[in-house]
Protein backbone atom coordinates (compact mmCIF):
# COMPACT_ATOMS: atom_id res chain seq x y z
CA UNK A 1 0.00 0.00 0.00
CA UNK A 2 1.39 3.40 -0.97
CA UNK A 3 1.56 6.41 1.35
CA UNK A 4 -1.36 8.06 -0.47
CA UNK A 5 -3.48 4.91 -0.17
CA UNK A 6 -2.61 4.63 3.52
CA UNK A 7 -3.64 8.25 4.06
CA UNK A 8 -7.10 7.55 2.62
CA UNK A 9 -7.80 4.68 5.04
CA UNK A 10 -6.03 6.18 8.07
CA UNK A 11 -8.86 8.51 9.28
CA UNK A 12 -11.38 5.63 9.38
CA UNK A 13 -8.96 3.34 11.20
CA UNK A 14 -8.07 6.12 13.61
CA UNK A 15 -11.75 6.41 14.59
CA UNK A 16 -11.91 2.67 15.25
CA UNK A 17 -8.78 2.78 17.41
CA UNK A 18 -10.04 5.87 19.29
CA UNK A 19 -13.18 3.94 20.11
CA UNK A 20 -11.19 0.99 21.52
CA UNK A 21 -9.04 3.35 23.62
CA UNK A 22 -12.09 5.28 24.83
CA UNK A 23 -13.81 2.06 25.88
CA UNK A 24 -10.78 0.91 27.82
CA UNK A 25 -9.49 4.09 29.45
CA UNK A 26 -12.72 6.08 29.51
CA UNK A 27 -11.12 9.36 28.46
CA UNK A 28 -10.29 11.16 25.23
CA UNK A 29 -6.65 11.91 25.98
CA UNK A 30 -5.62 8.26 26.43
CA UNK A 31 -7.84 7.23 23.51
CA UNK A 32 -5.96 9.73 21.39
CA UNK A 33 -2.61 8.23 22.47
CA UNK A 34 -3.88 4.74 21.60
CA UNK A 35 -4.94 5.89 18.12
CA UNK A 36 -1.63 7.68 17.60
CA UNK A 37 0.50 4.69 18.63
CA UNK A 38 -1.74 2.36 16.65
CA UNK A 39 -1.47 4.38 13.44
CA UNK A 40 2.33 4.41 13.73
CA UNK A 41 2.30 0.60 14.10
CA UNK A 42 -0.03 0.25 11.10
CA UNK A 43 2.15 2.62 9.07
CA UNK A 44 5.17 0.37 9.67
CA UNK A 45 3.09 -2.57 8.47
CA UNK A 46 1.60 -0.76 5.44
CA UNK A 47 3.70 -2.67 2.86
CA UNK A 48 1.72 -5.76 3.73
CA UNK A 49 -1.74 -4.12 3.69
CA UNK A 50 -3.86 -4.75 0.60
CA UNK A 51 -5.90 -1.80 -0.65
CA UNK A 52 -9.00 -3.85 -1.54
CA UNK A 53 -9.42 -5.34 1.92
CA UNK A 54 -10.87 -4.07 5.16
CA UNK A 55 -8.31 -3.52 7.91
CA UNK A 56 -10.60 -2.67 10.80
CA UNK A 57 -9.99 -6.04 12.46
CA UNK A 58 -6.25 -5.48 12.43
CA UNK A 59 -6.70 -1.89 13.65
CA UNK A 60 -8.75 -3.16 16.61
CA UNK A 61 -6.12 -5.79 17.51
CA UNK A 62 -3.36 -3.20 17.33
CA UNK A 63 -5.38 -0.73 19.42
CA UNK A 64 -5.95 -3.41 22.08
CA UNK A 65 -2.22 -4.12 22.11
CA UNK A 66 -1.50 -0.38 22.48
CA UNK A 67 -3.90 -0.19 25.46
CA UNK A 68 -2.11 -3.08 27.16
CA UNK A 69 1.28 -1.61 26.33
CA UNK A 70 0.33 1.76 27.81
CA UNK A 71 -0.88 0.05 30.97
CA UNK A 72 2.34 -1.96 31.26
CA UNK A 73 4.38 1.24 30.99
CA UNK A 74 2.29 2.87 33.72
CA UNK A 75 2.75 -0.15 35.93
CA UNK A 76 6.51 -0.01 35.37
CA UNK A 77 6.65 3.69 36.28
CA UNK A 78 4.68 2.92 39.44
CA UNK A 79 7.14 0.16 40.37
CA UNK A 80 10.22 2.25 39.60
CA UNK A 81 9.23 5.48 41.27
CA UNK A 82 6.65 4.31 43.77
CA UNK A 83 4.26 6.97 42.51
CA UNK A 84 0.54 6.80 43.15
CA UNK A 85 -1.10 4.75 40.35
CA UNK A 86 -2.71 7.03 37.77
CA UNK A 87 -5.87 4.99 38.06
CA UNK A 88 -7.13 1.70 39.31
CA UNK A 89 -6.77 0.03 35.90
CA UNK A 90 -3.09 -0.72 36.61
CA UNK A 91 -4.22 -3.24 39.23
CA UNK A 92 -5.75 -5.37 36.47
CA UNK A 93 -2.40 -5.84 34.72
CA UNK A 94 -0.01 -8.68 35.43
CA UNK A 95 3.32 -7.74 37.00
CA UNK A 96 5.74 -5.87 34.75
CA UNK A 97 8.75 -7.79 33.42
CA UNK A 98 12.12 -7.72 35.18
CA UNK A 99 15.24 -6.68 33.15
CA UNK A 100 16.23 -10.39 32.99
CA UNK A 101 12.81 -11.32 31.62
CA UNK A 102 12.96 -8.50 29.08
CA UNK A 103 16.31 -9.81 27.84
CA UNK A 104 14.92 -13.34 27.56
CA UNK A 105 11.85 -12.05 25.71
CA UNK A 106 14.08 -10.14 23.27
CA UNK A 107 16.18 -13.25 22.61
CA UNK A 108 13.05 -15.32 22.11
CA UNK A 109 11.67 -12.74 19.70
CA UNK A 110 14.88 -12.76 17.61
CA UNK A 111 14.70 -16.56 17.49
CA UNK A 112 11.08 -16.37 16.30
CA UNK A 113 11.94 -13.79 13.63
CA UNK A 114 14.73 -16.06 12.42
CA UNK A 115 12.42 -19.09 12.36
CA UNK A 116 9.74 -17.16 10.44
CA UNK A 117 12.42 -16.14 7.96
CA UNK A 118 13.03 -19.81 7.19
CA UNK A 119 9.38 -20.52 6.25
CA UNK A 120 8.40 -20.85 2.59
CA UNK A 121 6.58 -17.74 1.22
CA UNK A 122 3.28 -19.64 1.19
CA UNK A 123 3.66 -20.84 4.78
CA UNK A 124 4.68 -17.38 5.94
CA UNK A 125 1.74 -15.71 4.22
CA UNK A 126 -0.90 -17.96 5.79
CA UNK A 127 0.89 -17.95 9.17
CA UNK A 128 0.79 -14.14 9.23
CA UNK A 129 -2.82 -13.90 8.05
CA UNK A 130 -3.72 -15.95 11.10
CA UNK A 131 -1.13 -14.59 13.51
CA UNK A 132 -1.22 -10.88 12.70
CA UNK A 133 -4.52 -10.22 10.96
CA UNK A 134 -6.33 -12.66 13.27
CA UNK A 135 -8.45 -14.25 10.53
CA UNK A 136 -10.43 -17.44 11.08
CA UNK A 137 -9.50 -20.46 8.94
CA UNK A 138 -12.69 -20.12 6.84
CA UNK A 139 -11.87 -16.48 6.12
CA UNK A 140 -8.31 -17.32 5.05
CA UNK A 141 -9.62 -20.16 2.86
CA UNK A 142 -12.17 -17.96 1.09
CA UNK A 143 -9.81 -15.03 0.58
CA UNK A 144 -6.85 -17.08 -0.65
CA UNK A 145 -8.83 -19.68 -2.61
CA UNK A 146 -7.04 -22.44 -0.73
CA UNK A 147 -9.18 -25.21 0.76
CA UNK A 148 -9.71 -25.12 4.52
CA UNK A 149 -7.92 -28.45 5.21
CA UNK A 150 -4.91 -27.19 3.23
CA UNK A 151 -4.94 -23.89 5.13
CA UNK A 152 -5.01 -25.83 8.40
CA UNK A 153 -2.16 -28.08 7.28
CA UNK A 154 0.05 -25.21 6.04
CA UNK A 155 -0.47 -23.22 9.26
CA UNK A 156 0.29 -26.34 11.31
CA UNK A 157 3.52 -26.95 9.35
CA UNK A 158 4.57 -23.33 9.89
CA UNK A 159 3.82 -23.42 13.61
CA UNK A 160 5.61 -26.74 14.16
CA UNK A 161 8.68 -25.52 12.22
CA UNK A 162 8.85 -22.38 14.37
CA UNK A 163 8.30 -24.38 17.57
CA UNK A 164 11.10 -26.83 16.73
CA UNK A 165 13.46 -24.00 15.80
CA UNK A 166 12.70 -22.25 19.08
CA UNK A 167 13.37 -25.38 21.10
CA UNK A 168 16.68 -25.87 19.26
CA UNK A 169 17.80 -22.29 19.74
CA UNK A 170 16.97 -22.41 23.45
CA UNK A 171 18.99 -25.62 23.94
CA UNK A 172 22.01 -24.09 22.21
Amino acid sequence: MTQAEFETIAPGLRKVMMSVGRNFFGNESDADDVAQEGLVALWRYRDRLDIGQTHEGLAIRIAKHCCMDMMRKRKESVQLYGAIPPDSITKEMPAAQSPQEILETDELQSAIDEAIGQLTPGERRLYELRQIEGWELDEIASKTNISKPSVKSIISTARRKIYEELKKSLKS
Binding site: R61, I62, K64, H65, C67, M68, D69, T105, L108, Q109, I112, Q131, I132, G134, R159, I162, Y163, L166
Partner: peptide, 10 residues
Protein backbone atom coordinates in the same frame (compact mmCIF):
# COMPACT_ATOMS: atom_id res chain seq x y z
CA UNK B 1 6.11 -16.05 22.38
CA UNK B 2 4.92 -17.79 19.21
CA UNK B 3 1.41 -16.43 19.61
CA UNK B 4 2.90 -12.95 19.71
CA UNK B 5 1.94 -9.84 21.64
CA UNK B 6 -0.96 -8.97 19.32
CA UNK B 7 -2.76 -12.20 20.21
CA UNK B 8 -1.79 -12.36 23.89
CA UNK B 9 -2.62 -8.70 24.49
CA UNK B 10 -5.95 -9.07 22.69
Amino acid sequence: AMMGELATDE
